[in-house]
Design a protein around this nucleic acid. Structure first.
Lengths: 221, 221
DNA sequence: TTGACGTAAGAACGTACGTTCAGTATTTTT
DNA sequence: AAAAATACTGAACGTACGTTCTTACGTCAA
């Protein structure tokens, strides 16, 4: 049989599950425990079969060195897996580029800075296209529920309303702050009692300093 | 020093590199070989430091059970780190059902409660399937950066580690709290100085009370 | 009906691997 | 100047883990 047997499929699924859920592959004994196989050899038989059929790569004498290949990645007949997923309509998503360090003088989405791309359900994101993403450094906005490491989704625009959370280019780097225009200056206010606002004289302020408006925050926990 | 030392950063980078390149984390001796450390204890010191600073989770007595956390995932300036990142999978999405009010006695995903469905880029969501979403009510977790109205993504599971943010069914409603099991009771701790923890006697505690583990937070701004 | 294949038990073996203890030296903090 | 954190060496220990051998039972195709 060139396809997988039911048991082999279960082993493969468990390996994939372990990797997504725990971050590392299981041992032979962990597989055995899950499958109700008391002998490590029983498990090994399955792994050899998977390896022979090209669904798995292993390295000898290393613990947990199991690598499912991309072959046959379609989940089998498991009740959970293939609910009503469907072919993923493109229109429902916005493709957002996550940029790394943003520095003055360079276009925000300069290619070298795009470190990742994610797609976001349009329902979660006001602003349509024209949105880019970045990772938060530091905790100047901690009282606004924006923590270091969070992903921010930012709509590119050169103006903002008083009190909006904006991404601005101050000095040489991008920072996230509340935006408070005053008479003679623009005040960029951190949401952190221990930090002082940054003041930019109205004369020095240029619209190009505003990179955009924060429209979404995502955090992996 | 709360940030990472150069050596610690190198260890962390190597762990990440191993995971992306080989599919599984390294052993202490593999780290040692790469770093020029002949004693496994020298390596262990680094791992303990990374763990203490929150950059890494480990499980005792398991080989290769190293899990970099999302904290400080910004790749420094290292050439290696951020190149071979993602294999750019076409449309890897997790379909997440957003539930409304969760009450005791009803399955979490009972049809009447599903108020919305969104698709999330798998790269943003640890835990694969088995994830549902809900809206936050109240600000009991405000100091953890979780505000009223935020969307939480919750991985269904009946167990959790100390200090995890969990969704639990306490009394008749679902609440979000830190999870702290103690000797005689389980403490559900709010992240809000004005609120008291909820204590559930160990005798009264049932695994069904844990609905899951918070794996993501999203906020529309 | 012999043989190949899948599935598994059980035991023995060796090594891979994490843990711990006892030191040493340097740097950083207090 | 003392105390703490960092960064190791080296060795001993116990267990986690993969490998291999032997035996066994059922199914299916030639």
């Amino acid at each position: 049989m060139q396809g997988l047997t039911q048991r082999q499929q279960m082993v493969l699924d468990f390996i994939r599950e372990s990797i997504t859920d725990r971050g590392y592959p299981p041992t032979l004994r962990e597989i055995g425990a899950r499958m109700g196989i008391r002998s490590t050899n029983g498990v090994n038989d399955h792994l050899r079969a998977l390896e022979r059929k090209g669904y798995l790569k292993r390295e000898d004498m290393k613990s947990r060195a199991l690598r499912p290949t991309s072959t046959g990645e379609l989940p089998g007949g498991d009740a959970l897996a293939n609910l009503p997923s469907l072919p993923a309509n493109d229109d429902d998503f916005v493709e957002v580029q996550i940029v790394g360090r943003v520095a003055a003088g360079l276009p925000v989405l300069a290619e070298e800075h795009v470190i990742d791309t994610v797609k976001i359900d349009r329902g979660l994101l006001r602003g349509g296209r024209e949105v880019f993403g970045l990772r938060v450094q530091g905790d100047s906005m901690i009282d606004a529920g924006i923590l270091a490491g969070d992903y921010l989704f930012v709509k590119k625009q050169l103006t903002a309303s008083r009190g909006d959370i904006v991404v601005a280019l101050i000095g040489d780097e991008a920072t996230v702050k509340y935006y408070y225009p005053e008479k003679d200056y623009v005040r960029f206010q951190p949401a952190n009692k221990t930090m002082a606002p940054i003041l930019v004289r109205a004369a020095d302020f240029r619209p190009t300093m505003l990179l955009g408006l924060v429209v979404g925050v995502y955090r992996k926990v």
